[in-house]
Amino acid sequence: MEAIEVKDLSKSFNGLTAVNRVTFTVHQGEIFGFLGPNGAGKTTTVRMLTGVLKPDAGEARVRGHDLKTDLVKAKAVLGVVPETANAYGDLTAWGNLMLIASLYGIPRRDGEQRAARLLTEFGLYERRASKVKGFSKGMKQRLMLAMALVSNPEVLFLDEPTSGLDVQSARAIRQKIRALRDEGRTVFLTSHNMQEVSMLCDRVGIINRGQMVALESPEILRHRIGGTVTVEFSFDKTPSSTPPGAERIGDAYRLYTTEPHEVISSIMGFATRNGLKLISVNVQSPSLEDVFVKLTGGAPE
């Protein structure tokens, strides 16, 4: 059984099509990265898949439960860290976790055990009796993740879980995401951090203006944009003219090519002709960011 199946899912808001016939499948036990520029429709998709918004058209299933006919059952197997939602500021960390546990129908004992374990794991156990409104952003986000995990969900939706967090907190969350995958859980992750996505995700879907423009593993995606490589090089002195086809980046030059061998020979020729010494050459295959920019025609944040 697939973890998430989405077919022709659509949603518009007063005439604006936020999600337009989106189709994809997320396999069980994978980390699926969902990318797209601001306003592409990521959060709208997550909200439809977690039962917050009703799709206008299309079908979606989570672990085989149809969202239209079996919404409560679908919600029972998923956990979510929404992009902008909050825990109850006037409840304690413990109170928030117990509330969620009881709404998932978890017996009180189990709920207490899981809450204690999760709070300890996320470094919040000492603060369990403090009201959440006094928590820092990172603490709140860790609590939201604990709340998403208290029901042991098979499928986890994380909408920009690391945005705005410091390096340590973000890394801790990434480690947790990996550990969950290793337990066989499925993670649906949206992020603007390309490095994060290429490090974590088994497959990536890219959405732009409500439409899916790519659905592949990060590796395949990188190859798909035409095998273009970036060649960066610099000389010991500034040449009087720019090498043909190159653009200047600081005190270095950059070239995009599918034929790195020829390009490098011609750079050598250019250096010899102008009495320059090549001091660095760097050949890079395209990054996920390059792919993203190419496919969405805009810079990611």
Binding site: T50, V52, V72, L78, P82, T84, A85, L103, M147
Partner: peptide, 8 residues
Amino acid sequence: ERLISCPI
């Protein structure tokens, strides 16, 4: 939002 994404 968090409340209604619970199975209720």
